[in-house]
Design a protein around this nucleic acid. Structure first.
Length: 593
RNA sequence: GCGCCCGUAGCUCAACCGGAUAGAGCAUCCGCCUUCUAAGCGGACGGUUGCAGGUUCGAGUCCUGCCGGGCGCGCCA
């Protein structure tokens, strides 16, 4: 099943070929002038330049070849050489009917499915998630769903930060507070016998403990050299897999992951993998030896590095620091080992790193090192950066008190706002409390996600709580509202025994809705190619808007039977496509609200 | 200092290999609930796309310079 835009594009290509013009210029796009046409091709203008002819003449010749196409109701040449196409009512109705009958609502699958790994979220043990994690999670989840929906085999990995200096800090801080645990850890470390540990030895350490202790320990580590040195030693003990340290660490990781999974799930973000830095730790010695054997490792200022600068670089790119002068693995070391691990495990054709734009250099360095070492092929690794989230003052977002806003608190704020607004609007009043809560949660998540995803990911944007929790206009809740209205109409239709039927597109609002439904595939393709979720968000919004106009202009249930059947089919097709688009965005529609 | 990104309506953002009259939402103003959910719909107002040049039949988009902002630049992650 082909969308109209592409079908017409192929028709124009054929006309170009027949005229001896370069077919790659025969592109069809939605019309910039909806008052004049549905679609347009600007190819004659570009072709004129290339073959040295008058653009209007070319356009007229192309138009002449298109005018008998049954799908085209009118073809006109306008301005300097635009070919304007108006789709026939029959073709439009047929396309709408096909979308209605298609489980994928008109969306294609990619021709050659790939194995894709999306690395996003990046939560850390003990460090609470803040709003900075929001974008990575939301965008990464959307990219994952988008690629999966297009037919790729996709795995999402949280890339858990579980293996650094902060672990040593925590082991120390927990031990200071709880001498029994400290003694247990030290005893086990000395004996090396993990089996001798009491089965529930460390379960009394909770996430609340870690949340409370970590900020204090981090601060002391900065201020007191002795404290820091001890934490480093404890980190080294952990990384050497000393039995007691390791068991205690396992408890940290477990309670953190459990809580994080719950928080992420509330946001509609679910990872397939929770691979952590600790998982690739065993690979590092072998990898270092391998890099050395390949002659890539160089001693420099007491550290061991891989030089990655290339001829033609506009500036000197720093090297990848593989082993620090203290002998420890660095951030980039772990990332490189992770590439190796993924290559050996999942074997992805493409790895997408959904991480803050500020890390662009870091990834460039790691990727180059991976290419040099033969751990990946050029182009197989891609960093999808996004802008920072700023406050309304244009500076990185802080709470009123100057601290970092925790992700959980943000979600709770959005929920509270959602409850208030639902009450104000008199929505969901007769529903059971559990369902009301569920709806409030869905509205809150839709608001947060859509506010983020409607922006192009690359640019920084302003984090404005009022805007995030505003439910009018171009917002997530608006989209939910439209979807729920359709569900309500369809429920009523079913109760009345009214059914869908042949599609006709007579009214302007019906025409517009059918054309918008047709644009789903292009929006998905654009989002996929550019890794730009905002294209899907934009389509979902346009579809909702188009439906809302249709809803206002065209009564459904009260219409004559044939018209009613057609409109019910259009409404059902819209709902299906809207829910699919929202699902790609990671947003769920409640049954009612 | 070097490098990357950005500058579009009062505010927040779009704009499909360069194409017609640069689009949305918010805010402001006007109109629409005896009809399927008014978190809605229609309309009005709002622009020298930071500035100056250049390339082109045509530039928000490409090139150069300048101004303004953000970020990064080896032992944190």
């Amino acid at each position: 099943m082909t969308d109209l835009k592409r079908a017409l594009g192929e028709a124009v290509e054929a006309a170009f070929a027949a005229e001896g013009l370069p077919v790659e210029l025969a592109r069809v796009t939605p019309s910039d002038r909806p008052d004049l046409a549905d679609f347009q091709s600007n190819g004659a203008l570009a072709a004129a330049k290339r073959v040295g002819k008058n653009p209007r003449e070319i356009a007229l010749a192309v138009a002449e070849r298109l005018k008998d196409d049954p799908r085209i109701a009118a073809v006109e040449v306008a301005g300097p050489g635009f070919v304007n196409l108006k789709v026939s009512e029959a073709a439009l109705a047929a396309r709408a009917a096909a979308i209605a009958a298609d489980a994928r609502a008109g969306a294609e699958l990619v021709a050659g499915p790939r194995k894709v790994l999306v690395d996003y979220g990046g939560p850390n043990v003990a460090k609470p998630m803040h709003v900075g994690h929001l974008r990575s999670s939301i965008i990464g989840e959307c990219i994952k769903r988008l690629y999966r929906f297009r037919g790729d085999e996709v795995v999402g990995d949280a890339h858990f930060g579980d293996w650094g200096y902060q672990m040593g800090l925590l082991i120390g801080a927990v031990g200071d507070e709880d001498p029994e645990i400290k003694a247990l850890v030290e005893g086990l470390n000395a004996s090396g016998d993990a089996q001798s540990a009491p089965p529930e030895a460390f379960t009394r350490v909770t996430l609340a403990d870690l949340d409370r202790l970590y900020p204090l320990a981090a601060a002391r580590g900065k201020a007191e050299p002795d404290y820091r040195d001890r934490a480093r030693k404890l980190t080294a003990e952990l990384q050497a897999k000393s039995a007691g340290s390791y068991l205690l660490w396992r408890q940290f990781a477990k309670v953190t992951q459990t809580a994080l999974e719950r928080d992420f799930h509330a946001l509609g973000v679910d990872f397939d993998l929770w691979k952590g830095e600790s998982d690739v730790d065993p690979l590092i010695p072998g990898m270092v030896a391998d890099l050395d054997a390949k002659g890539l490792l160089v001693d420099d200022q007491g550290a061991r590095i891989v030089r990655v600068s290339r001829e033609g670089d506009k500036r000197e790119l720093p090297p990848l620091l593989v082993v620090s002068s203290e002998g420890s693995a660095m951030y980039g070391t772990t990332d490189l080992a992770t590439i190796l691990d993924r290559q050996q495990g999942f074997g992805p054709d493409l790895v997408i790193y959904c991480v803050d734009q500020r890390q662009a250099d870091h990834f460039e360095i790691v990727f180059r090192a991976a290419y040099l070492a033969g751990y990946a092929e050029e182009g197989q690794l891609e960093h999808i950066g996004f802008g920072t989230m700023n406050g309304t003052d244009g500076k990185p977002f802080k709470t009123r008190e100057g601290g970092v806003l925790k992700l959980n608190d943000l979600i709770e704020m959005a929920r509270t706002k959602a409850r208030e607004r639902l009450h104000e609007a008199g929505l969901g009043e007769n529903l059971p409390p559990e369902e009301f809560e569920d709806i409030a949660g869905k509205v809150a998540v839709a608001a947060l996600k859509f506010a983020d995803l409607q922006n192009f990911r690359g640019t920084s944007y302003v984090f404005d709580l009022d805007r995030f929790t505003s439910f009018e206009g171009k917002t997530g809740p608006y989209l939910l509202y439209q979807a729920v209205r359709i569900k309500s109409v369809l429920r009523k239709a079913e109760a009345e025994g009214a059914r869908g039927g042949d599609v006709a597109v007579a009214e302007p609002a019906e025409r517009d809705l059918a054309l918008t439904l047709d644009a789903f595939e292009s929006a998905l393709a654009e989002a996929y190619d550019k890794k730009a979720p905002n294209a899907v968000a934009e389509h979902a919004y346009r579809l909702s808007q188009s439906f809302s106009r249709f809803y206002a202009a065209c009564p459904i249930l009260q219409a004559e039977p044939d018209v009613r059947a057609s409109r019910l089919t259009l409404a059902a097709a819209t709902l299906k496509q809207l829910e699919l688009a929202l699902d790609v965005l990671g947003v769920t529609v409640p049954a009612r609200m």
